[in-house]
């Protein structure tokens, strides 16, 4: 009971504080929350294959420098165990390694727009760039999404931003965290990201489940984080091509 009351008071204080924030301050708070220094997570990705089957891939994911560097090590199913994908420069350079051949291959460069293997996420959707730097924003108002009070923004990408023509963004009012994003291209709604199961881990609010739905052609990709640690000490060496061959 006492815990509930404390939570209610804290939420009320936070909401009251938030009400006084300017759009710029809100965006800065969101950037602060979402752009973490480093993380290590266990993630499940559910994709739909071209034959229409569902496939679950499990991986260990490491990020550093606000997601500028990302390493994914597949752990399950055994077919892909040990396969690694390294993304550098905000998803612009991608390397692939499989222990089955023990070779490192440079998959692509300037690949930000490309889809992450089998998913409806593009590399630029995965990299959490700064909203303040990558978009011009307009606060459209406030709205409840699945019971969560949100700020609703219109985001127009700047030249350095992603390739979409527009994003409609809903950020949690209390926790300054993405709850939903609608991605538009040439005025048409392409995709919708919805974030669920927000938890506080190591002092960071985090969405444990992301669902990206392709609204034009159907299909969706689910990314579920089962474990995550933040602000851990990760050696830069982990994010090098030379390190990929290390077991």
């Amino acid at each position: 009971m006492l815990r509930q009351m404390v939570f209610m008071v804290v939420t009320a204080v936070l909401t009251a504080q938030a009400q006084q924030l300017t759009p710029k301050e809100i965006i800065q708070r969101i950037d602060e929350t979402e752009r973490v220094a480093s993380s290590e997570a266990i993630v499940k990705q559910i994709i739909t294959t071209s034959g229409g089957k569902k496939r679950t891939l499990e991986m260990k994911s490491f990020t550093k420098d606000q997601n500028d560097k990302q390493l994914m090590i597949y752990t399950n199913p055994s077919r892909v165990k040990g396969d690694k994908i390294l993304m550098l420069n905000d998803g612009n350079d991608i390397w692939f390694y499989t222990p089955k051949t023990d070779r490192v291959r440079h998959l692509a460069s300037h690949a930000k727009r490309q889809k992450v293997q089998g998913s409806d996420f593009s590399y630029e959707d995965m990299s959490s760039g700064s909203i303040e730097e990558d978009y011009t924003y307009t606060l459209l108002g406030e709205e409840k999404i699945d019971g969560t009070s949100c700020y609703k923004f219109e985001l127009i990408p700047t030249e350095s931003g992603p390739h979409y023509s527009k994003l409609i963004y809903w950020g949690d009012k209390g926790r300054f965290l993405t709850i939903r994003i609608d991605y538009y291209e040439d005025g048409e709604l392409l995709k919708r990201l919805k974030c669920y199961d927000v938890k506080k881990v190591d002092g960071h609010w985090y969405q444990m489940k992301l669902v990206m739905a392709d609204l034009q052609e159907g299909g969706e990709t689910v990314m579920e984080t089962t474990e995550i640690k933040f602000d851990i000490d990760l050696d830069d060496k982990i994010f090098t091509t030379g390190n990929l061959k290390r077991r």
């Binding site: 496939r55 891939l57 089998g118």
Partner: peptide, 15 residues
């Protein structure tokens, strides 16, 4: 071929 197979598996390209 192995690398292509792995990428196809991760990418869901069954054929």
């Amino acid at each position: 071929v192995i690398e292509l197979a792995q990428l196809a598996y991760l990418g869901g390209q069954d054929k």
